[in-house]
Nucleic acid binder design. Structure first.
Lengths: 105, 105
DNA sequence: TTTATTCATCGTATATTTGCGATGAACGAT
DNA sequence: ATCGTTCATCGCAAATATACGATGAATAAA
């Protein structure tokens, strides 16, 4: 590849692609749904519901945190994960905008 | 990784993740927009508009075709690429459903 | 038939993602 | 102070993605 060319695009396209990347693994889709279904959710709760190890789930949570779709509040040795409604709404709006630009329906 | 675990999830979550993956590179976001702006579009037209080689653009087109967001109609030595409105609409609907499940706004 | 155009695919290099076990940090409870 | 719980991170291995040049197939035009 030599070097990535991802930054030779507009910031909007890059941001949208980045959000899409965060959604591009079924485990992360599932995690978002789990976090909404359960009001409070620790990492261990999610591990129990997924066919993945604790360290792998932790990585997926980190990716969702990176783009701001969730946040984790430290509570002693636990971390309470929640969806970030503000950023989810922003992501929804930007995706809606993309589809309105791209789809002639 | 040993083996991927992507198929240990529901078909819906896997399909959504797959659509998101197709949108997870700014070049592919850009290509979708270009295909909408121009009514008829050959691969070479897109290559002229992107900082990527012809073979790389062809790969991105292939990925968009794989999930059905675009289709290419052969026209002699040319290939006429278009967005696939039906599947774009389906993708939009499924993403809307996800956000309605996941976002408390 | 030869030539030019258009594009997909192959081969290759590098980067990134996915996944796990092991380890250690942080904290509450004993 | 010690122990158990919770979780992030490190180190590693394997799989995928990104990017390019080279090549070849397919067709239109000459």
């Amino acid at each position: 590849m030599a070097y990535s060319k991802k930054n030779e695009f507009t910031q909007e396209d890059t941001w949208l692609a980045d959000v899409a990347k965060a959604l591009s693994h079924p485990a992360r889709i599932r995690i978002l749904k789990i976090l909404t279904e359960m009001n409070v959710c620790m990492c261990g709760d999610i591990v129990d519901l997924l066919p993945l190890s604790q360290s792998t789930v932790s990585q997926h949570l980190k990716e969702l945190k990176r783009v701001g779709l969730i946040h984790g509040d430290i509570d002693g040795p636990k971390v309470c994960y929640c969806v970030n409604n503000i950023n989810l709404q922003k992501a929804k709006q930007e995706l809606d905008l993309l589809f309105s630009q791209v789809c002639n329906c």
